[in-house]
Nucleic acid binder design. Structure first.
Lengths: 348, 348
DNA sequence: ATGAAAGCGCTAACAA
DNA sequence: TTGTTAGCGCTTTCAT
């Protein structure tokens, strides 16, 4: 069933009467430079195909001190923002003849670091790190190991970064919520709340800045309890929204949810509410998911341009840039696409 | 900034006064068997840490003829079913000390085959193929190359497969739709339609069988035009649902959507409809997405147990099974969680 | 308890 | 236009 050993260039050399180096050149594309005759190349190619020869990339990599691999670390796979990023990353890697290796850290700094080390062991040529939890350690390691790396989504100080313009996106979303927000008689509910994320993350802190600034411009600066940074886990977001609604006696006039994962948790609570609960509230989410865009109530979403972020990151690599500059990519505010235009039309 | 060369066991050997082979054994864990003194190992470990030594996996892989890599091919990353599978695959790979490499084929057989060859070049130890478009070619290649492979989600004839019990899942969903379906006066609309997928795919054909059988049991065998296999692309599903609704003058009494991607397309059309359009229709989707579970209308979803499928696949590997048997994993019918209980409560 | 040396499959000088 | 050879970093006999 299985042949004892895979064919090597030595097998092809023996079968073709050429030397191993000629076979190598013929098969690797270097034959032009080595001025090997086209006919020789043809013969060798034919025999290689017959033998089912495939280059051993471990051997090539070892010899050339390059692997043809490019790594991407993301927090999780099952999230539309990051999985779209994976899709772009993979396509663009292939365009460059690189093989993408994508790993998820589950937002655990130790796991993240372990993955960096593993990928370095496999000699990935570049490392993209999305949503880094400990960028400084990553940079320290990579710079010591001579591994070119680039941060995406969350910036680092030890290498170049491509992030979305969080201030702009959060401003757009906050302004939208302010514009659409109903005016509620109950003082406590007549506010916009920010929910989800970690204050220590650059993206979240920028978004909070923008949120705060927008509300302040409208003469309603947020009080501390309007900003609930409960992390990214759906569970904790679910707990927090439940507690908040308990305190307020209903939904607040506006809700700015800071991530899809937090939004998942929020929905886990919403499902227990009657439809009327949503009539007096406007809801937004930073990040986009096509299904989330079609919920029962209008959801204003910010779509980050992950494809362009990846393009920019590759461009930095191409330009040989290794310093700690930050490139910002514009996100886009997406109009709610809820079906219930009749019911909520006056708000959206 | 970057040291000229990464540390190798020769550097550590020089610094520690031990020989390269001793260093290798000390660092790889083989020192116990080689009966190297614990103190020597300690010294070597310390120096290695100081030097930031990391095993060159290309060299180890070349020497040992194994890479520590395990591959997974999926159709797309940005789909909750497959991204959940990636998440499970990665976690279980790490549990086994393997490094996961996940690639997407975009359901293109040529691309799929190219990825198989690439992964083989990198000497992945096992290859998982989810949603294979050309399983026979993959098996032919892998068996010739001595690469152990296993099909997930869609079965193959040349190797073991772990798939979900499509007949069971589709039966459950179809029965549910039949039970919840309203009775419409218009003959043409008073039917359940099947939308999406490719007839040539095993999963789709099994689901159609089950769908047909269920309807037949209820005395309403489906006519050919009730089964619309328009592929997986959202665009074509959008076109087809629009055309269908045109023909019928509205939504059919029931709709069995065969994939999340098709469902995305369907929603792209639904967004243009008034809410009343959904009052007389019951909708189901084979596959689960947490956001899709919270739409404006109740959606019955089938959640495949991708985590268990991956577990079973690894178990087959552990048991050394290489023949073409098929293992089926039970999916689960998920109750609609729409908020609009008042409006649609009588159906869900 | 440890060292010397060969070799995994490939590529790149250097020869011819 | 092609062949010979060394060596990438590691593991693994085989010595000692």
């Amino acid at each position: 069933m299985t042949q004892p050993r895979k064919a090597t260039i030595y097998d092809i050399a023996r079968l073709s009467g050429a030397s191993p180096s000629t076979v190598s050149a013929a098969l690797s594309g270097a034959w032009k430079a080595r001025r090997i005759s086209e006919s020789t190349v043809e013969t060798i190619r034919k025999i290689a195909a017959e033998q089912g020869y495939a280059t051993n990339m471990q051997a090539r990599g070892l010899r050339q001190a390059r692997s043809g691999l490019v790594g991407l670390i993301i927090p999780v796979h099952d999230n539309r923002f990051f999985s779209s990023m994976s899709q772009s990353f993979e396509a663009q890697a292939r365009d460059r003849g690189l093989v993408p290796v994508i790993a998820s850290s589950l937002r655990d700094p130790a796991e993240e670091m372990r993955i960096v080390e593993t990928l370095a062991s496999y000699a990935v040529e570049y490392l993209f790190v999305a949503g880094a939890t400990d960028p400084d350690s990553i940079s320290a390691f990579c710079n010591a190991a001579g591994l070119r790396h680039i941060f995406v989504d969350l910036p680092g100080n030890g290498g170049p970064s491509v992030i979305s313009d969080n201030h702009r996106g959060a401003t757009d979303l906050a302004e939208k919520l302010l514009a659409e927000k109903p005016d509620l008689p109950q003082e406590a509910r007549n506010k916009i709340y920010f929910l989800g994320g970690n204050r220590s993350s650059h993206a979240t802190s920028r978004r909070i800045e923008a949120f705060r600034a927008a509300l302040t411009r409208h003469g309603t600066p947020p009080s501390p309890e309007q900003i609930i940074t409960c992390g990214y886990a759906p569970r904790s977001a679910m707990r927090e929204i439940a507690a908040l609604m308990d305190r307020l006696g209903g939904l607040p006039a506006g809700l700015f949810v800071n991530s899809l994962t937090a939004f998942e948790g929020v929905l886990g609570h919403f499902v227990n509410l009657p439809p009327e609960a949503f009539a007096q509230s406007v809801i937004g989410c930073y990040d986009y998911d096509p299904f989330a865009a079609y919920l029962q109530f209008p959801v204003h979403m910010v779509r980050q341009n992950s494809n362009h972020m990846i393009e920019q990151a590759y461009a930095l690599i191409d330009r040989g840039i290794n310093d700690a500059r930050v490139i910002e990519v514009e996100p886009e505010l997406i109009q709610p696409r809820t079906i219930y235009k009749g019911l909520f039309g006056e708000m959206g």
